[in-house]
Design a binder for these strands. Sequence first.
DNA 1: ATTATTTGACCCTC
DNA 2: GAGGGTCAAATAAT
Length: 364
Amino acid sequence: MEETIATILYGCTLSKEMEANLPNWANQRDVLLSKTEEIISVFSNVKERLIINQQQEVVQEWLSNSGHQQALELFHAADQNMLSDHIATGAATTMPFTVHGLPQESDQMMVGDASHDSSRVAAATSSSSQRQRTRCRTGDRDRRTFRVGAPRMGNLELPPEDGYTWRKYGQKEILGSRFPRAYYRCTHQKLYHCPAKKQVQRLDNDPYVFEVTYRSQHTCYMSATAPTVPPPSVEEITHQTTTTLPSAPLILAPPTSASLSGHWLSMDIKPQGDQAGTSYTTTFDIQRDFGHGSVGSLASLVTAGVGGGGGVGPSGGRFGREVDYQPVVDMADAMFNSGSSSNTSMDKIFSTIDDKWDTAEKKE
DNA sequence: ATTATTTGACCCTC
DNA sequence: GAGGGTCAAATAAT
């Protein structure tokens, strides 16, 4: 932990250096890019360390408390990339932690039609054998479906956060499902024309599991509410998405620090439109990010707008009012995973940017 | 006053 | 026409 703190302090030093030299560097894009990437790198490192610690603690605590020998085996299996077998045999039911990761394109690619997704989901969530109609709406082409565990304590209605702020715009009873389906869109839809949406539905046969379907990509990388480490919760490990174009490139890859910083530095936040025709089916298993390997997957996924496996609900919302964008604050915010974004010196530095954005927004 | 949620109605696709 | 998805007015929370 000491090493982590030291890394944080180093990152703070770099940030202060940037703050102090900002007037000089303002016109030196390359320098800004370089420095920003350095800072991002440092804080990404910090974040990974923290995530590792948290996940390990949660897993160990749960295992020690529950005495689930099967889960213990599962955990080790995950560590050895053997989880698919467990899932296939039904062993992987619930795990008290959230695991996000990148699907491997080679992992059990399933050829399917996006339009069949809802049918499949409905069929899976309904005990009845009622056959659902196939649909293929325009927006169905970019869908990624995850199963996310609901918290076992507290408000069972709310799956864990996924780091984004969503605004609920609808709810509908679904034929053959006991529970209604909730529809969410990105809170920043207006500001950034962010097309991201998600649907959340509780499984019929397991009310503790939500099926979350993400549609379209986030174009608002600078979330006002920074990506957060989901609380310890049960998360279905099977992730399923559908594809009409098996050869379509996966867009689940997390943004590189360069790509992210590119967005952040340039403030070039433009609608990227739907990734038309890029929906896909991928079934993949728990990621092997515990204790080793690439641990930044969670943060990366969330940051990338991929919808890293879960979360629902009126996050932000009335419990966390939307704030004006403070790009660099958010950047640091995201890196720190804090969610608070005020009272920093960065505010002053970028207040002009805020003003400009506010003005632009009011013009609309 | 502002922003989010709820919910019935409407639209779109099959 | 059926059913899923979205809109938008009403309502609630802050």
